[in-house]
Write a protein that binds this DNA or RNA. Structure first.
Lengths: 121, 121
DNA sequence: TATTGACTTAGAGTTAACTCTAAATGATAT
DNA sequence: ATATCATTTAGAGTTAACTCTAAGTCAATA
């Protein structure tokens, strides 16, 4: 699959896709006879994971560490698991923080609604 | 209250507090006879709100807009309400995205656990 | 054959949100 | 009286994560 289609599929710019490859967030993508990237199924799967994590706010640095551990083979399984557990913790914390923020917003919005309806009477 | 204590209370650096004031995220803080900031109750309340929103990822730009509308008085109540509703939507979307990420992480972690326990037999 | 379009590269530039630096002031502790 | 400490200011520097630029290649189309 060529870069344009991959870009559309994941909602990442072509620049970002090349950048992710340059910094090792995805492996070197094979090139076709013209020298253009030809993304394989495995690349797409990696991108799926990377996009999902990036969308949630997982840092590039952490994802690179994870990828790096992957490259080092089975010995690093425990380390990888622990890394994911850490990130899960961070995301759970973030959800709680967002929830607190939502509660505050909810309260303020209701307040505005009260004010606005009163004003109209 | 002096900047040091405010900094500790909200977990913001003194630099950040001065920066927030400079860009209008909080109003100009009154200075004492020595020219040092003396944060009032109203400043602390504003900071409480700003911090909560910033922690959840609401952008400074949006918060500045909100503050700006506040300065413009009661006429802008509807606009302020709508701005908050928009931000609520963004945060709800973000929660869903994080949940998707968490589900994926959960799956992977379980997988690692299976692999690791099998290896030990 | 000329031009259009999709791609390539290396490297520079951008943006949001801080964070740091340097020089100065005034109050407090030794 | 001197040193230390908490402040102040304007403005420069940093970081993460892109995003853009310029110059070039190749294949397809008018």
């Amino acid at each position: 699959m060529r870069i344009k289609e991959v870009s559309q599929r994941f909602g990442l710019s072509q620049d970002t896709l090349r950048y992710y490859e340059k910094i090792g967030l995805i492996d070197y993508v094979t090139r076709d006879s013209q020298g253009n990237r030809d993304y394989q199924e495995s690349d797409l799967q990696r991108l799926e994971f990377v996009c999902c994590m990036r969308d949630a706010g997982v840092s590039i640095q952490v994802l690179r560490e994870y990828i790096e551990l992957n490259h080092l083979g089975d010995e690093t399984m425990e380390a990888r698991k622990n890394l994911l557990i850490q990130e899960r913790k961070k995301l759970l914390d973030k959800q709680a923080i967002i929830q607190a923020s939502l509660d505050k917003l909810e309260y303020k919005i209701e307040n505005y609604e009260k004010c606005l309806s009163t004003k109209k009477i």
